[in-house]
Every structure is written in structure tokens, then in C-alpha cells.
């Protein structure tokens, strides 16, 4: 099976089939990336992300994985989208401060089957965008710290403290959103389970 890098090189050279295969491989991850962030029109952002890869190909370094490169493009596409969405102020949006909920309080269309999961998703949406991204990529995509640093465009040392901060704020949000102590406890347990899983894979 061809590697991502090989497919990507072939796509750049005009091989649409290779491009199609590459898109098929990573579609689910990119779709997931935008899922808890935009209500409709996610496919446009997904498409822009893949197109963005071609446009930014010079930035693709062979030593990092294609997926990491893809997520960093996805992040740029998301931030550009949010900039046009912003309504709060005329000023620059600070993605370290503004959350998706601030920028677009309409509910995302994810409906979780379980309350704990729903609560977790809602709380994530209320974190500053870059903290939400950090946690989601870390928990759900299993991105190692070094690659997370590349996606978020921060030094590797900063990622750890950012994850710490994100976890703190997530718990604060959960405390505000959960209506019963039992739900809060169950949801916090899930986060602990995610953290243990991350520790096991050596992150």
C-alpha cells in the first residue's frame, strides 16, 4: 500500500486517483475535526482543508506525518471561517480566549446518545478554540505532544501546559453545565479514563 506521502506527491503531480485515495483515508478524521465546531456547511471546510494541503504543500515536511500536516491546515481553515463568523466585536478574535460557543452559540448538530458524552461535547465547545482543539486532537486523534505542537503552532514545551490549562477549564465548564452531581461525577470519570489511556500510550 502506498504511504500518505507517496499518494500526496502523486496527487501534486496531477494524479487524481491518488488524491482520491488520500482523501478517502483521512476524510473521517477531518470530518470529525469540524464536527463539534460548525453546524452546517462542514463539507466546504473539509474540501478547503484538502485543497489547502495542495496550496501549502511547500510547508509539508516529510518528517512529520501527513495527518499532522492535514490537521494544521484544518485548523487554519477553521480559524479563517471563525474570523468571518465573529460577531462579538470588530476587534481581532483571540482564539486563545474566544470559544466556539461565543462565536456561534447555535447548537452543533451532534447529538450524543449518552448524557455524559453530550455534556462533554457541550463543555468542549465552551473552551477557547485552541484549548478545545488541543484536547480533542489529544483525546480523540491520539496526536503525540510533538505533533500537537506543530498543529497548534506553538513550541513543544507549551503544549503540555496548554493541555493542563485546557483540562482545568474543561472541568470548570462541566461543573457549571452539569445539573446533577452524579452526571458531573460520571463525566469527570470519563475524562480521567481518557487521561489514563493517553498516559498508557506514552504521551
Amino acid at each position: 500500500m502506498a504511504t500518505d506521502s507517496e499518494l500526496f506527491a502523486a496527487w501534486q503531480a496531477g494524479d487524481a486517483e491518488a488524491g482520491d485515495e488520500l482523501v478517502g483515508r483521512h476524510f473521517a478524521a477531518v470530518a470529525r475535526f469540524f464536527r463539534n465546531k460548525v453546524a452546517t456547511g462542514g463539507e466546504d471546510l473539509i474540501q478547503h482543508t484538502f485543497l489547502g494541503c495542495l496550496e501549502a504543500r511547500a510547508r509539508f515536511r516529510q518528517e512529520s506525518s501527513f495527518r499532522t500536516f492535514l490537521f494544521s491546515i484544518a485548523r487554519n481553515v477553521l480559524l479563517a471561517h471563525l474570523r468571518t463568523l465573529r460577531r462579538a466585536h470588530d476587534r481581532q478574535v483571540d482564539f486563545g480566549v474566544s470559544s466556539l460557543f461565543d462565536l456561534d452559540p447555535s447548537p452543533s448538530q451532534i447529538v450524543a446518545r449518552e448524557q455524559e458524552q453530550q455534556l462533554l461535547l457541550d463543555a468542549l465547545r465552551r473552551l477557547p478554540v485552541d484549548l478545545q482543539l488541543a484536547l480533542e486532537l489529544f483525546y480523540w486523534e491520539g496526536l503525540p505532544l510533538a505533533e500537537l505542537a506543530q498543529v497548534l503552532e506553538v513550541p513543544p514545551g507549551t503544549v503540555k501546559s496548554r493541555l493542563f490549562r485546557a483540562r482545568q477549564q474543561l472541568k470548570e465548564q462541566l461543573e457549571q453545565l452539569a445539573r446533577t452531581p452524579a452526571l458531573l461525577r460520571d463525566t469527570l470519570e470519563r475524562i480521567d479514563a481518557l487521561d489514563r489511556a493517553a498516559a498508557e500510550r506514552g504521551a
Binding site: A29, S65, A112, E141
Partner: peptide, 21 residues
């Protein structure tokens, strides 16, 4: 690096963990 990371995300779907969205 690509080959290593082919199936990276399965950990989050293990039982007892919150599902990926």
C-alpha cells in the same frame, strides 16, 4: 512516519471511553 500512524485513533473507541464524535 506515515505508516506508523495508519490507524492511530482506535484507542478512543475502546470500551468505557467516551466515543469520538
Amino acid at each position: 512516519p506515515d505508516a506508523e500512524r495508519e490507524q492511530p485513533g482506535d484507542l478512543a473507541s475502546s470500551p468505557g471511553l467516551p466515543q469520538r464524535p
